[in-house]
Write a protein that binds this DNA or RNA. Structure first.
Lengths: 233, 233
DNA sequence: CTGCTGCATATGTATATACATATTATTAGA
DNA sequence: TCTAATAATATGTATATACATATGCAGCAG
């Protein structure tokens, strides 16, 4: 078989990848079972298992007990996007970060928001709007609704100094959430805050985070024109 | 100690998560080493290792040899997005899929494209524009450049029948790539193809895929208004 | 022919053990 | 005091073994 010994799961993974890329194993093909591969590669089954499991995690293989392992027919590529804290994102790009609180009020949220956050019907929530700037230029509008249960009235004054985006990360734990990407046209408000023209296309991220089902916060990030977010496969 | 035995790496992971969420272990904190945790949980070190390694993969823990394991200070949340084949995405939403080839030509690509794809300066490439429809309504424009090396002239006629998006997945292997999300305003062309108004905000995905550095294809997907892509944390 | 049962099989996982490797902490030397 | 060698330590990984679990498939009963 192979003369070089495959003595690490990474080398096994590479060999398997090579066989997929060379189309020796084509999408949909059933590949040999772990025991056989282990023998061929001259390593333990656990090592092969680690390699194949990792490739399955990345979506390149489909594995099922008894049915075996096959090359994914639809390499449903999982792109992992890193959602950074905004201040850090701006700093990483080499710009000077700035922050300005626009408004902070405790009011009844609109129904779209209270639906998403599954609030009681008539519960007030903290509404915060602020702006993050890069080298003084508007970078993104943060329009956030906060479950008041998670932030005391006293703590709210902190948002004069640092953004909810940043504060929440280190002070409120969460277990799950959703993220949505979309596009919108700048209305009068957005155009004003981002100093751009009305009607310009803006990139939008909506994010809701929860702690054991209970909504903590729901935020809409409206980015200045030409913003783009990149990730690698 | 704990009375229940932690006899699976999942249960260990849950316990660790619980401690993070309860803020018993706060962001930045150093947590006990694997051996100690294994003893406390009454399981093998390998089991703890599996759990912690998985949490580190998800970005919740930072691990370094000798330095130990600590709770991530900036839970750089990795959102994993599933990028499906368009036909499948439309079918999954319960709509009837349709496909129409708009144009297919072998021409010199514009410099933005040849830069990204790192083509030779004067190499022609296959340019394909097509539309995917859901229940007959335009869903997304696929504007693609193909490295002709990977698709023979004979094969190109296949794109009268099925979209490059779909064909490539099962016929051309790739090893890496980038994805970029952004927003754009509908110009005359886009408005025409998507039957929307000029100036409407559209969601855009740019994707380039390579096989060992060599560019295979670069595509811009321009979605109809109100498209949004969702993912969970 | 249909549906249920049980067996065979491939992956999933836990365990103990051993060694590898990275990195910090310490100590000896200039 | 600063620097370079060295020890100590936490994670990373390979191994053999054993058992768990899901599930395709064959065989059986209706």
């Amino acid at each position: 078989m192979t003369d070089t010994p495959f003595n690490s799961w990474q080398s096994v993974q590479e060999e398997v990848l090579a066989r997929i890329h060379s189309r020796q194993w084509k999408p949909g093909d059933l590949i040999p079972n772990e025991a056989d591969l282990a023998q061929e590669f001259g390593c333990a089954r656990a090592t092969v298992n680690r390699a194949l499991q990792n490739l399955a995690d990345e979506g390149l293989l489909d594995r099922r007990r008894k049915a075996g392992t096959r090359v994914a027919t639809h390499p449903v590529r999982k792109a992992t996007m890193y959602i950074p804290v905004i201040r850090q994102e701006i700093a990483d790009k080499g710009h000077e970060y700035g922050y300005e609180l626009i408004c902070s009020e405790r009011v009844l949220p609109p129904t779209e928001v209270s639906n998403i956050m599954e609030f009681g019907r008539r519960a007030r929530a903290q509404h915060i709007v602020c702006i993050h700037t890069a080298d003084g230029r508007p970078y993104v509008i943060e329009d956030r609704w906060l479950n008041p249960k998670w932030v005391s009235a006293k703590e709210i004054s902190i948002f004069n100094e640092i953004s909810p985006n940043e504060w929440l990360v280190t002070h409120v734990p969460f277990t799950e959430g959703e993220i949505m990407f979309s596009a919108m046209s700048a209305g009068k408000t957005e155009a004003g805050l981002l100093s751009c023209k009305e009607g310009e296309a803006l990139f939008v991220i909506d994010r809701t985070t929860r702690n054991k089902q209970e909504a903590i916060t729901s935020v809409r990030l409206i980015f200045a024109p030409d913003y783009q977010i990149e990730t690698v496969l």
